[in-house]
Design a protein around this nucleic acid. Sequence first.
RNA 1: GGAGAGAUGGCAGAGCCUGGUUGAAUGCGCCGCACUCGAAAUGCGGUGUCCGAUUUUUCGGACCGGGGGUUCGAAUCCCUCUCUCUCCGCCA
Length: 427
Amino acid sequence: MTVLDLNFVRTHSETVRAGLAAKGDTTSLDPLLEVDRRHREAITRLNELRARRNRASEAIGAAKRAGKDAQEAIAAMQAVARDIKQLEQEESRLQQELQDRLLATPNLPHASVPRGTSEADNVVVRTWGEPLAADFPLKNHLELGEDLGLFDFRRGAKMSGSGFPLYTGDGARLERALLNFMLDFHRERYGFTEIFPPFVTRPEAMETTGQLPKFAEDMYYIDRDQAYLIPTAEVPVTNIHRDEILDESQLPLRYVAYSACFRREAGSYGKETRGFLRLHQFNKVELVKFVRPDTSYEELESLTAQAEAVLQALGLHYRVVSLSSGDLSFAAAKCYDLEVWAPGERQWLEVSSCSNFEAFQARRGRIRYRRAADKKVDFVHTLNGSGVATPRLLVALLETYQTPEGRVRLPEPLQAYMGTSLLTPCD
RNA sequence: GGAGAGAUGGCAGAGCCUGGUUGAAUGCGCCGCACUCGAAAUGCGGUGUCCGAUUUUUCGGACCGGGGGUUCGAAUCCCUCUCUCUCCGCCA
């Protein structure tokens, strides 16, 4: 029901105010508190009336069973029933307004998140590997893809519009190899349970993870079925346990899922629109965890390390960035971005975001667990991170492993999946 | 796409026709206690979630798939949505 814990918001309103401010939100709190106050007032009055009605109805029932006439009592209660109906309408209106405001309120940043207002305040926490030092002119992924016949943006756009990539030949195989490699990697090495989710979900599922109500315009929507194309596997996988009470012994649950991801990327034209850097459809392997609240920050560190391990296994130079409070996404309490170095593009490319949502998503989706110690029910914490997204990974891979002859040498883990160690022009 | 049946607590399963201590029988499961060297079996007791008020305690309210309606009163009657199952059709 609630997004932030309403009780917490009431009793620690100044803490919440400061947290929202750190995320750049200074206007949500006061109206929220006011609606909450009025809503509680209405509930109290309503409960009093209902209690009266319940007692009277019980008496009427008893009288009727005893064969007595109850007309007088019934007539008296008609007025009360009218009042209740009216008050119920007011209560549900306030409840709706409260709900709307809560759903539109972002999560609060964790204490360890660097304070700031934008991307510029993000902090690089570590860097792995070295940038490629080549003694020959480096090509970018578009030139390499063209030479090796890996993809065909022109024909992809012909049938589907720009931003819908068409992979061809070794490009198609390499894409599939990367996905298979990453799925196997997380399953075998870290014991993630593999999931193959639906790529279409209902609005409620989008509400759980926080895409709705605020980001409807970023998604593809099928009007006829009132369904959304998923922007990430996070949505269906997190919703696996929506409206469930898990047992503590089941936690942590760790899932790895492949999905295609669909994003409108409205308003981002003119920026990073070349090639694979920003797409309407791309492939991603996603990691999702459901954990005990007291372990979620350890799990965030391990989640990040697990995503990094993919890049390490592929021998790619990357860095880990801790997002500042101002750059944090709507639902996240803390987030690390993984950025891989693309030597041909000469820039860092974001291939993963590893986030702890704490109880934010769990509240929205009522994902709970029963504690072993006291048998009480509490919200789980959810986390997810890309493990990782392929288009930019492919860019970094091609550009990093290019040879002076314009071919691409494959890192060891991919060779078994591709059945070769070298990509060469097809003709 | 067409026709029909159904959705009840952790699970199974009554109640719905004939609205009135039914938050809900019964069984299983689970927890505690007794018995036992221990276990099983047996006996006794307990065992939902959410919200509000008060807060060491307690009181009140809501919830029988979701939403709405009828009524003094709905798990029970009416409408609607979603989902599940069966049959027919279609189909990778």
